[in-house]
């Protein structure tokens, strides 16, 4: 003990203490995180989950979606603040809350992605409550999200037929009417992509299992992850936006290079 008290004024003591503190907190969080993940994988909801979820719903969502999630009365301009959530299923909640779109930050053409407001446990409880109101699409199982079993080539064919017109052939997203847009799909988890297809969030149409089978959806997710991992075969993608960004670069960068060469060509040598 004496040795320790002697060294506590050592210049490095504060740094050592800080490191120790960080390690302990980090370690605790890591343990807590794995516990949460393990819980989130179970898709059966207990009565307690539903009860907790209802409390969260009343506190955070009922303002727009109404008590008992029946949807709000149309407002002054005939716009409904929030739609009824009966029958939208756990998948819709997991997508909207899990990506941070809900609770909505502000009203506008469409709900924007933001840092999520509820942890996985709370999201699960909310999903449990909404799922208890009426039958709807469930959160997809591990089996249908296992991209090692997916076929990227088949998925690419399905993607180009069903998704590429809005989300761009390279999944870079695109504009819709009046300020709405189809988001870029890079960095979105397979679970959220799957849930978006089955629930049709906001203006996206629904792609139910009769339209694209669960295996087809897995193929699409495999394709998206594949093109994200392998990058652009042609060098810099410039946002994968096609002629707009490529043309801009050529008109500015390319012309600058040509002007530079012209000056060099006509300049007298020293």
């Amino acid at each position: 003990m004496k040795a320790l008290s002697q060294r506590r004024r050592h210049p490095l003591a504060a740094i050592a203490l800080l490191l120790l503190g960080l390690l302990v907190t980090g370690g605790l969080y890591a343990v807590a995180g794995t516990v949460n993940e393990a819980k989130a994988q179970t898709t059966t909801y207990s009565a307690q989950d539903v009860e907790q979820g209802e409390k969260l719903f009343v506190a955070n969502c009922a303002t727009c979606h109404g008590i008992n999630a029946v949807g709000a009365e149309p407002g002054a301009h005939g716009f409904q603040a929030g739609p009824s959530l009966i029958g939208v299923g756990a998948a819709a909640v997991d997508f909207q809350v899990g990506t941070g779109r809900m609770p909505m930050q502000m009203s506008g053409p469409q709900a924007q992605v933001k840092p999520k407001q509820f942890d996985e446990e709370q999201t699960r409880q909310l999903a449990a409550y909404v799922a208890s109101l009426g039958a709807g699409p469930a959160v997809p199982s591990e089996e249908v999200l296992d991209t090692t079993k997916g076929n990227a080539a088949k998925g690419g064919e399905l993607f180009r037929t069903n998704c590429a017109m809005c989300h761009n052939a390279a999944a870079a997203g695109g504009a819709l009417t009046r300020g709405k847009f189809a988001p870029a799909l890079g960095g979105v988890t397979g679970e959220h992509i799957y849930e978006a297809m089955v629930t049709g969030p906001q203006n996206m149409p629904v792609f139910n299992d009769a339209n694209i089978s669960p295996e087809g959806k897995r193929d699409i997710i495999t394709f998206l992850h594949t093109i994200e991992e392998q990058g652009s075969p042609g060098g810099a993608a410039l946002g994968s936006l096609g002629p707009v960004s490529e043309g801009l670069l050529l008109w500015t960068g390319g012309l600058a290079v040509i002007i530079g060469f012209t000056i060099w060509l006509t300049q007298r040598s020293s």
């Binding site: 064919e157 399905l158 037929t161 049709g200 149409p205 629904v206 792609f207 139910n208 009769a210 339209n211």
Partner: peptide
């Protein structure tokens, strides 16, 4: 692209 026929019941509300 599969070419499989579609039942009316498959086309749920909001589908494309």
């Amino acid at each position: 692209p599969e070419g499989t026929p579609i039942k009316a019941a498959d086309v749920t509300m909001g589908s494309a």
